[in-house]
Design a protein around this nucleic acid. Structure first.
Lengths: 113, 113
DNA sequence: GTATTACTTAGCATTATGGCTAAGCATGAT
DNA sequence: ATCATGCTTAGCCATAATGCTAAGTAATAC
């Protein structure tokens, strides 16, 4: 499988967890430290770190350490591959819808005769 | 967590596997039997069934049995929640981009003085 | 210089995922 | 009636995912 397949898998997998999605939503507002991110989740720090590394490996966030504080921020273009894939699928799926329409039309036409 | 959160998790999780994505792409062409779907994957039937049930629970496909053949088909509107979520995020993330722009502008302005 | 804060690392427990084989069951062909 | 086909179920194995605690380390505050 192509590399961009792997990318998509990482991306969708990262998005498949509600905790991670809410982290992203929070980060969309403004960059935030690890502890501040952890706060609302009720999860322990090591657990949060793990979620962050999943997000980072998927390319969805970057983190940088300044002193003892690590600040996390979204990577704005990271969602593009997911959107692109969905758009492609929508095109394909619509094509099938049209074919179904055509089939139904055909069937109705046949019936009329 | 809200129910539609669960839906999204199921959806993204279903999409996070390359085998399942290629099944969807094939099904986007035309509805197909389980065995025909299994063919190109090189996977055993029980394994394929498992993937299919993940796709079905995510609402991405429907299946119906006619005689001894089960035919699988995509559910065209099933990708909508994923698209919607991505669109919402894009809006939020762009807002932050704009804020960053503003910040940079401010910084540059400050520097000029 | 000691304590606190903010992560980090290591390691553990539980559950989920993705693959398999073997055996079952219903339908269609002979 | 018998056999082949197409799925289905049950159960196993290995690995990955998600949570934790406990014990680090490094930077800051006192």
């Amino acid at each position: 499988m192509a590399k961009h397949d792997t990318d998509l898998s990482l991306l969708f997998h990262a998005l498949a967890d509600p905790t991670r999605r809410s982290m992203l939503t929070k980060l969309a507002e403004t960059p935030v430290s690890v502890t501040d991110l952890a706060g609302p989740t009720g999860l322990r720090l090591p657990t949060v770190m793990r979620h962050l590394s999943v997000l980072e490996e998927a390319g969805l966030i970057t983190t940088a350490k300044d002193g003892r504080v690590r600040t996390c921020a979204i990577v704005p273009e990271a969602l593009v591959p997911a959107r692109t894939w969905l758009d492609e699928q929508r095109a394909l799926w619509e094509a099938q819808l049209n074919r179904l329409d055509a089939f139904v039309m055909q069937a109705m036409k046949g019936r009329e005769e």
